[in-house]
Design a protein around this nucleic acid. Structure first.
Length: 114
DNA sequence: GCAGTGACTAGTA
DNA sequence: ATACTAGCCACTG
């Protein structure tokens, strides 16, 4: 990832790092903020290739339905939910996060007049 | 180079 | 609510 060809991933990681503790963001949201609108799959792919022990808060990225996405390797879904629960993120009966409540909304720069 | 895959999503039925 | 589809595009064999 540190290599030049992995520059996309760096942009994605940079955005993910901005998600505050206790908040979540969707794959599509991250893709758009990183400058790759419509490429949500790439976000999932980028996070998948993240080395273990990374400082990137990958657990805060969930899908548009508010649920933790399944991975090829089972078991991690449970781990991710555990991490989010520790941050205070609440899962409803259906095991989903209320995006209206926990979704991170980056503060956009207001085009202030000057 | 081509085809299959995937931590996705919005739309349709 | 679930199921299937088309679009998406980097990565892999």
């Amino acid at each position: 990832m540190g290599d030049p060809s992995g520059e996309r991933y760096e942009w994605i990681y940079a955005v993910v790092r901005r998600i505050p503790y206790g908040r979540v963001a969707t794959y599509g949201q991250i893709a758009a903020l990183a400058g790759f609108p419509g490429q949500a799959r790439q976000v999932g792919y980028a996070l998948h290739s993240l080395p273990e022990g990374s400082e990137v808060p990958w657990q805060r990225v969930i899908n548009a339905r508010g649920e933790v996405s399944l991975r090829s390797e089972a078991g991690w879904e449970h781990y991710q939910r555990h991490l989010l629960a520790e941050e205070g993120v609440v899962f409803n009966d259906s095991g989903r996060v209320d995006l209206d409540r926990y979704r991170w909304e980056p503060v956009l720069r207001t085009p202030r007049s000057r």
